[in-house]
């Protein structure tokens, strides 16, 4: 299929239609269609959605968005989600940075086992942890707080952050550490002033992944919250049922949950591929 592009690897992308362009076009279309459909519905009134079937809104309306952005029951959901996601990202990075440094630079007793044990937490099904988390956080009085969700999400985000950062740190030559120590830098100063700037892209990628997995998770965040820290995703599931579903508002809420993700992707777009490879390319 891709003879043209591979036998001439040096050729710059010429404006001719290649089979690879068609493949990519079809794939991107497949990815965008369901999202487009949601977008389409979010600009329609519920009566229009239910009564007629059109490929685009005939009377575009912003009412659905207005409903969400003016009703505290809706928009606090977004604020709650953002609060615990940011908390989680900060906590995960703060503990993962030194650990990843240790794993990338030193041998110590049980390091390999420890590393794998950390990874096993990434493999733990949230469903297994839902009930014990509920009881644990209730018993220490953290139930329905943002920090509870942030800590719970550390279960899978910390191992992932350690894994990614370790991959990036491995790429930094050890001589840099040694030179800095000879020059009289303390560990703390070296780490903050020299090392962190060197792996800035790695930190960015790790932050992106923490953000992403905390943002998309629902099972734990729903189990650990009732009112005060309820995430937007859980509010969406609640509105279904009762007096039928308001598809328009649901679609608008869905679109609004995609926005933060789309924004952060834009900022890390050049590192995305390497990041998904956990820094191991």
């Amino acid at each position: 299929m891709t003879d043209a592009s591979i036998t001439a690897p040096k050729a710059r992308a010429l404006p001719k239609v290649k089979s690879s362009t068609i493949v990519m076009g079809l794939y991107l279309l497949f990815l965008m269609l369901p999202i487009y459909w949601l977008l389409n519905m979010s600009f329609k009134t519920n009566t229009e959605i239910v009564s007629t079937f059109t490929l685009w809104p005939t009377n575009p309306t912003l009412d659905n968005y207005r409903t969400i952005l003016t009703d505290p029951a809706w928009y606090t959901g977004y604020i709650n989600s953002l609060i615990y996601v940011v908390m989680n990202t900060v906590i995960s990075l703060a503990v993962a940075l030194p650990a990843a440094y240790a794993f990338s630079r030193y041998h110590f007793m049980g390091d390999k086992h420890l590393f794998f044990w950390l990874l096993t937490n990434r493999m733990a099904p949230p469903a297994v942890f839902a009930l014990p988390f509920f009881q644990l956080y209730s018993s220490v009085g953290l139930f329905d707080t943002h920090i509870a969700v942030a800590l719970a999400h550390c279960l899978f985000n910390v191992p992932l952050a350690v894994w990614i950062l370790e991959g990036f740190m491995r790429g930094v030559p050890k001589e840099i550490d040694e030179t800095a120590y000879i020059d009289g830098y303390s560990f703390g100063r070296f780490f903050a002033k020299i090392f962190m700037p060197l792996i800035a892209s790695g930190i960015g990628v790790a932050a992106f992944f923490c953000f992403m997995f905390s943002w998309v998770e629902l099972l734990l965040s729903r189990t650990l919250t009732t009112v005060d820290a309820k995430p937007i995703a859980a509010i969406m599931t609640r509105t279904q049922g009762a007096a039928g579903i308001d598809w328009g508002v649901l679609a608008a809420a869905g679109i609004l949950t995609i926005v933060p993700g789309a924004l952060v992707i834009y900022f890390v777009r050049n590192y995305i591929a390497k990041g998904f490879a956990l820094g191991r390319v």
Binding site: M24, Y27, L28, L31, M32, I35, M212, W215, V216, E217, L218, I232, A233, M236, T237, G254, T257, I258, P260, G261, A262, V264, I265, Y266, R269, I272, A273
Partner: peptide, 16 residues
């Protein structure tokens, strides 16, 4: 462009 569009589904909350 492809990278951004391809990553989009990955950042949508799972229930959405």
């Amino acid at each position: 462009f492809c990278l951004v569009v391809m990553s989009l589904p990955l950042l949508i909350p799972w229930n959405v």
